[in-house]
């Protein structure tokens, strides 16, 4: 079932059926989107529940002005960024460094199957400013087009390209610094 059919199903009053189709089609995709932001499986699992609650509650106000999947990605991205904000505030209140906390999570993640370079890439991504991190994640991990990212984030394509460029350069420098010490 494509997005148009899902929305038609919802419009015909079969709301739960439509929602179940969204879950079937997008739960795994949104899981990976959020996982690349948060790295931790447990955090992603918790947040995914909240994201789909939000989707269910917001579906009546979806007007179809944007594509269904960019709308879903926008909700998931906003929720993930809010989650990171809250974590940052908690870390500040506990006199902890959020970057170190995130890096520890990556190191301690039992479900991480990557090599050292991939670990470095994730850590470097965690040190990026929020905007660059978001753009990099959506482009690099999700392979989204700049046009779709523009729709999700409400930013111009030119600005997104610049953000991605800066993010990629910083990550390359970080990986280079660690992989080629001195």
């Amino acid at each position: 079932m494509d997005d148009k059919e899902i929305l038609e199903t919802y419009g015909s009053g079969q709301r739960e059926a439509a929602f179940n189709q969204i879950v079937a089609k997008y739960s795994e995709k949104l899981y990976w989107l959020v996982r690349h932001f948060l790295c931790s499986h447990e955090d992603t699992d918790d947040l995914l529940q909240e994201i789909f609650v939000k989707v269910w509650q917001s579906l009546p106000s979806f007007r179809g002005e944007s594509k269904l999947y960019t709308w879903l990605y926008a909700i998931a991205t906003n929720q993930a960024l809010n989650f990171l904000h809250k974590q940052k505030i908690r870390a500040v209140l506990n006199f902890k460094d959020i970057t170190t906390e995130m890096e520890n999570k990556i190191d301690e993640d039992q479900h991480f199957n990557g090599d050292e370079a991939q670990r470095l890439l994730l850590k470097a991504m965690g040190r990026l400013p929020e905007k660059q991190r978001t753009v990099f994640s959506l482009r690099y991990f999700e392979d989204l087009s700049y046009e779709d990212i523009s729709e999700i984030l409400g930013t111009s394509v030119g600005a997104l390209k610049a953000s991605y460029h800066f993010a990629a350069e910083k990550i390359k420098d970080e990986i280079k610094k660690y992989s080629e010490p001195d």
Binding site: Y31, W32, R35, H36, C39, H41, D109, H111, F112, N113, G114, A117, Q118, R119, L120, L121, L122, Y140, F141, A168, E169, I171, K172, D173, I175, K176, S179
Partner: peptide, 18 residues
């Protein structure tokens, strides 16, 4: 080169419980 580093580094793979 920097570009090569990012291209050579495959995307991090996370796992999930079965």
């Amino acid at each position: 080169m920097g570009k090569d580093i990012l291209d050579k580094t495959s995307k991090p793979s996370f796992g999930v419980p079965e």
